[in-house]
Design a protein around this nucleic acid. Structure first.
Lengths: 112, 112
DNA sequence: ATTTAATACATAAGAAAGTTAGGTATAGTT
DNA sequence: AACTATACCTAACTTTCTTATGTATTAAAT
């Protein structure tokens, strides 16, 4: 209860999507939103208005590929990471790690 | 050498400024940029184009107050945190902490 | 039987928060 | 005399979200 939803810091969504797909294989958009809510106990919410344009952007950049399937008469677009995407994910994860380390230095000991 | 500069995630700048001023007392804008670069070994760079509008915004919101001093014939605007700012900083730090925890869950074990 | 909720995609308008590129001015260094 | 550092500033632009809305199918509730 009282699961306060925390906003994303802008720029982190691509990293989240790519990392998730690199770890868990192919996934469709709606499932990504469910999965992130589930593993963060509802604290982090990916809105669809942010998600779908980002998926399209990552596909256009060649970091993701898509496979359309019909399940229960409903269309699902399964996204999976490309080789180029895997390489870029390494960079994005390094950046995120560096950001977190720097934040811990700056905000220390306030995060304790 | 090779001090790669990492970009800020948008939304984190106010938290950085408020936390720094809460910890270190009053500081002027230019000093804030120097201080952040120093303590992060040049990895995190606060651009002045981002800094000054944010300081003005935080002052307008009543989270910071300002005191103008002249040092060596140069004007310095010393910002310091207000009571309202201290309360807001607690919330912002909680949000940042939550974000980092959630990122560690989502990206785990990729950040190791 | 009809409404509501969940699933599953999408876009468009607007806000927020940065980057980039400029500007002014003084002091100190090459 | 030119350049670097200090110290402030703004404006145009871009990126990346939020909010609101739309379509369509399936399942559950009233």
């Amino acid at each position: 209860m009282c699961m306060q939803k925390n906003n994303l810091y802008k720029g982190s969504l691509s990293t989240i999507i790519l990392s998730l797909l690199k770890e868990q294989g192919k996934m469709y958009g709606y499932k990504i939103t469910r999965e992130v809510e589930k593993i963060t106990s509802g604290q982090m919410v990916i809105t669809e208005g942010a998600l779908y344009p980002t998926l399209h952007k990552l596909e256009a950049k060649g970091l993701l590929s898509v496979e359309i399937k019909k399940v229960n008469n409903r269309v699902r677009k399964y996204y999976f990471i490309t080789e180029k995407g895997k390489k870029e994910t390494v960079n994005l994860l390094r950046e995120m790690k560096s950001f977190i380390e720097n934040m811990e230095i700056i905000l220390n000991p306030k995060l304790a």
